[in-house]
Design a protein around this nucleic acid. Sequence first.
DNA 1: TCGGTTTACGAAATCGGTTTCGTTTCGAGT
DNA 2: ACTCGAAACGAAACCGATTTCGTAAACCGA
Lengths: 356, 356
Amino acid sequence: MPKMAQIADNWETGCVMAQMRIKDIAAEAGVSPATVSRYLNNRPGQMTEETRARIAAVIERTGYRPRAAARNLRSSRTNLIGVILADIANPFSSAMLEGLSVSAAARGCSLMTAISGNDPAKEAESLTRLIDAGVDGLVVNTCGGNDEAIAAAAGRLPVVLLDRDVADGGVDLVTSNNRELVAGLVDELAAAGSERLCLLTEASDDSPVRRERAEAFADELSRRGLAGEVVTLADGGASGVGRLDETIRGYAGKKLGLIAVNGLVFLRLTEALAQLGPSLPAGLKIATFDDYPWNHVLFGGVTTAAQDTLTIAERVVERLCERIDVVTTTVGEAAKLAPKRIEIPGHIEHRASTSR
Amino acid sequence: MPKMAQIADNWETGCVMAQMRIKDIAAEAGVSPATVSRYLNNRPGQMTEETRARIAAVIERTGYRPRAAARNLRSSRTNLIGVILADIANPFSSAMLEGLSVSAAARGCSLMTAISGNDPAKEAESLTRLIDAGVDGLVVNTCGGNDEAIAAAAGRLPVVLLDRDVADGGVDLVTSNNRELVAGLVDELAAAGSERLCLLTEASDDSPVRRERAEAFADELSRRGLAGEVVTLADGGASGVGRLDETIRGYAGKKLGLIAVNGLVFLRLTEALAQLGPSLPAGLKIATFDDYPWNHVLFGGVTTAAQDTLTIAERVVERLCERIDVVTTTVGEAAKLAPKRIEIPGHIEHRASTSR
DNA sequence: TCGGTTTACGAAATCGGTTTCGTTTCGAGT
DNA sequence: ACTCGAAACGAAACCGATTTCGTAAACCGA
C-alpha cells in the first residue's frame, strides 16, 4: 500500500477517503508524477496507450481530483474569468451572466462575479479584488468613473468591456448595434403613423450607451426630416412623471411616438400612462429597448429592440480567451492585440404597441 | 538593490513594474518572509510597531500584492464561496446574487457563480467544478434531482441551501416563511371580499417551495372554511391559458381571488387576463409572490408577498462562514454543527389589485 | 542579580502540482 | 549492424506564500 497524504482518520467507519496527491497516483500506477501531470493536461509529449490506460484506471478508481491551488501556483493560470456587473437587477445583466457562464464553462473556465451596483467605488474595489484573486481575464460592464483604473487593468491582464465603453477607448468592447436598433425603432414608429417622436431618458443615466442611442436618435430624425426630441425624466419622483405627462399633453392630437431608452425608463413610462388610463391613448405608439418579460404582457405587447445577449456573451468570452491565449503563449511584448470594437446585431420585435 | 522575481523587461519605458515576491519585500524591509507574512495576516505573534511600520512602508511604496494561488496552496483556504443558481432569469435569483455578493465581500470573500438553468446535469457538473476549484463553501439554489450529490458535497465541505431544500434534509437551509406569507395573501384576498380562492401553479414546477406554498394554501382554506383549489396551468402553450380562462369563467359571479405561486405564473396570468380586457374583471382580485418590478405597474399595482432577499442572503453567508470557521478551526469530527433550518420573514405589499 | 516566561523574529520545511532538462528506449534509414 | 532522431518518461527544481519550530532578547517578580 502506497504512502498517502493523509490517511483517513477513521478508516473503520469508511467515512473519509484519503486525500490523494499526484505522487500517490503516480506510485500506484508505477509512473512518475510528471507523467501523471502530462496525462492530466494531455500534453504534447505523449505517452504509450498502455501507460495512459493504467493512469486512467488508477484515477478512475481512486476518484482523484488535482488541487487547483497547486496547479494555479505553478502555472500561474487559474481558468477563472472575473466579471464585474453594474446592475444585476437589470435583466440585461442577468441574461448576460447566464450567457457568460455557459460560454466560459464551454471553455473550462469558471466565473468570479462582482456587482458594483452602479457605485464607482465598489467597482474599483471589485477590480482589485478580482485581480488579486488571480483571474486570467476580466469582463467589465462598467458603471463609469473608473476609466483610468480600467485602462490600467487592461494593461496588466486581458480585459473586455461589456456594453459600456471607457473614455479613451483603448480596450476591447462588445456591444449591440445601437445605431441600427434606434433606426429600426424609428422606422417602426414612423410606419405606425407617428408624426413626432420622443426618446425618453433618465437624468441619472449618463452612460455611453444612452449617449450613443440619443445621438443616433437625433441623427435619424434629421436624416428623415422628422420632428421630435430627447426628453429627460427627472430621477425617481413624480416630477419626472409630471414632465412626461406634460410632454404627452403638449403633443395632444399630434400622433406621438415614444421610445424608452431602456427597460427601467419604460416601466416609469408605463406608470405614467397608467394615470391616463389602462390602455394606450388613441394614436400614441410606444417602443422600448431591451426584451424584458413584461414587454410581452404590457399593452398587449410592446415593440422592442432586443439585444442578442447570448451572442454578445459568447463573443466576449471568445475575445477574452483570445487575449488570454496570447498572453500565456507569447513571451515579450510581441503580438499585442490591437483593441477591437465588436458590434453584435440585435433585432426589432414587432408587437401590438406599434400596430397601426 | 535586492534581487527580484522578474525584473521589468523594459526598465527604460518604466512600463512594467517588477513582480515582487514576499521575500523581496522582506529583504527590502530588512526582515524575514515569515514576519512579512505575519504582517499581512496580522497574526497573534505581534511585532514591534517599528517593524510593522517599516513593512507597511515598503508594501505601500512597491504596491506589493500577495499571490492568492500561493496563499491558497499552503493554507488550503481560498476565501471563495461557490454559488449555484437554478434560474438567473428569475429576479429572485438576481436579487439573491447581489445580496450574496455584498455579504461575502463584507467578509473578504469573493463569489464563484454557476448557473444550472434548471438542468440537473448542469447543476451536478457545476457542483464538481466549483468544488474542484477549491471553494471554501457552497451556496446552492438547487433545481432538484441531485439530492444525493448535494448531500455528499455537504459531507465534504460547508454547504447552505438557498430557498429550496433537498429530500432527506440533512443540510442547512435558509428560506422564507412561506406558510405565513400564504396566510397573509389569503387574508388580503378575504379582506378584499373574495369568496373563492385559487392558487395558480405550473405543471413543470415541482419544487419543494411550490409544494410548501400549495400545502399551506390548502391548510389555510380549510382552517378558515373558505372555498378554493389549486389550479395547475399546463406548461407554455395556450392550453394553460385556456384552462385558466375556463376557471375564471367557471367562477363567474362568485367573487374570485387568484394567487400566483410565483412571478412567472403571474405573467402568464396577466397574459390570459389581457384577453378578457385591459383591467381586472369586476370583482376579481389577484395577488402574487415575489416582488418584481412589474408588480408596481400592472393593474395599477399588484399585491405581493415579498421575500426579504437581502436578509436571506446575509444569513446564508453568515451561516456558511460559521461552518467554514468550524471546519478550519477544529481538527477532527469534533464540533460538527447540526443542520439548521432558517426562516426569514417576508412581508405583504398591499397594492391596488386587492383593494375593495 | 537571577531563573522563568513572554515576545519578536528567522531558518527551513511545506503545500501539490507543473516544467525543465536529461536519459533511455525505440524505430527507421543506409 | 550502426547511427540518429524522435518519443516516452523520470529526477528534481520550482511556483510564492504559510507555518512550525527554535532562538535570542526583553521583561518580570523575588
